[in-house]
């Protein structure tokens, strides 16, 4: 109970500090700006593409973005073509039929989440190590409590930023799409925001875990960005090696050690893969955090 209290107090302190220092505002602006730009750009580009497609494929023209794509999804020959290109995929089964604007938003938010997480949260531990502020905390709570409190505080901030950005994207949809379509997009956009948050938890664990290793905020950010690159490249690299050289199948399982390896389970709409994938990502994030915290617990501060 005392441990939970310490973690909660540290998380509250992290929130308070973020609000007072305007870090929370920066986080919100980054997420919201990215969501608004993405949604606006998606609607514009998709609208133009659909107009051209409608002409080429002699489909009924529509002013509403997404109608042509939805018609294509429903077309059995088109569906067969897509499946022959990407293979039979449960993800494809789950997402086919969803509004393309929603899917592009989801793709974008999954793409941006790791970088934004590392940029905003990646220095939070090293900054306190450098300034010595951590010492005032460590005579009052354990190092592990402090680390988990930091994680919780940042996780809650990212949750707020993602929810607000999803709402912002919904507002753009309301402005740019017919009201019926936009209304039907509101909950799905929030849903994708929540999934992106779960995905972010793994990256947050990685960013904070790395931040425990160094007193230099700049170095922590750089290492975080390098980690995003390495961890992002690992799954396709494993697939590539496995398919071309027939390397042992164990390689393909290595991808499960990085967040990108479990990302696709968050694109599922069936409960079992979605929940197991979410659990996997949360555990992955906590594992990264604990690895950093284990080092921190043994170091001099």
């Amino acid at each position: 109970m005392r441990t939970l209290w310490h973690i909660w107090q540290t998380a509250l302190g992290e929130w308070g500090g973020a609000i007072r220092s305007r870090r929370a505002l920066v986080l919100l602006v980054l997420y919201l700006g990215a969501a608004l730009l993405c949604m606006n750009g998606t609607i514009s580009v998709l609208g133009r593409m659909e107009k051209e497609l409608a002409v080429v494929l002699q489909l009924p023209d529509s002013d509403e973005t997404g109608v042509v794509s939805a018609s294509l999804w429903k077309s059995k020959p088109f569906n067969r073509i897509v499946r022959s290109v990407v293979g039979e995929s449960p993800v494809l089964d789950d997402i086919s039929g969803r509004h393309p604007v929603e899917l592009i938003y989801a793709w974008f938010v999954f793409l941006c989440a790791p970088l934004l997480t590392v940029l905003v949260a990646g220095t939070r531990v090293s900054e306190d190590l450098r300034s010595g502020a951590v010492r005032y905390m460590l005579v009052r709570e354990t190092r592990l409590e402090w680390s988990v409190g930091k994680y919780l505080g940042q996780a809650l901030m990212i949750a707020v930023a993602l929810v607000v950005s999803a709402m912002g994207a919904a507002v753009v949809a309301f402005c740019r799409l017919p009201s019926g379509t936009a209304a039907s997009l509101f909950l799905p956009l929030l849903n994708w925001g929540l999934r992106a948050w779960i995905y972010s938890l793994a990256w947050l664990g990685l960013a904070l875990g790395i931040s425990h290793l160094t007193r230099s905020p700049g170095r922590a950010t750089s290492l975080g960005i390098v980690a995003i690159g390495l961890f992002g490249a690992l799954p396709p690299l494993m697939d590539f090696l496995h398919s071309f050289h027939g390397w042992p199948g164990v390689l393909t399982h290595l991808r499960m050690l990085v967040p990108a390896g479990a990302e696709m389970s968050l694109w599922r709409f069936s409960a079992v893969p979605l929940l197991s994938g979410s659990f996997h990502l949360v555990i992955l994030g906590l594992t990264y955090l604990m690895a950093g915290a284990a080092f921190f617990c043994r170091r001099d501060v």
């Binding site: 306190d128 005032y136 009052r140 709570e141």
Partner: peptide, 29 residues
């Protein structure tokens, strides 16, 4: 925890915090 306090050398309290806010949080901890 809470039975020992230290004024460490070269250690700043969080610069965006207020004395009241920081001390209150410490007291609660």
């Amino acid at each position: 925890g809470g039975r020992v306090a230290i004024l460490p050398q070269d250690s700043e309290l969080p610069l965006e915090d207020t004395p009241e806010g920081a001390l209150y949080r410490f007291g609660r901890l």
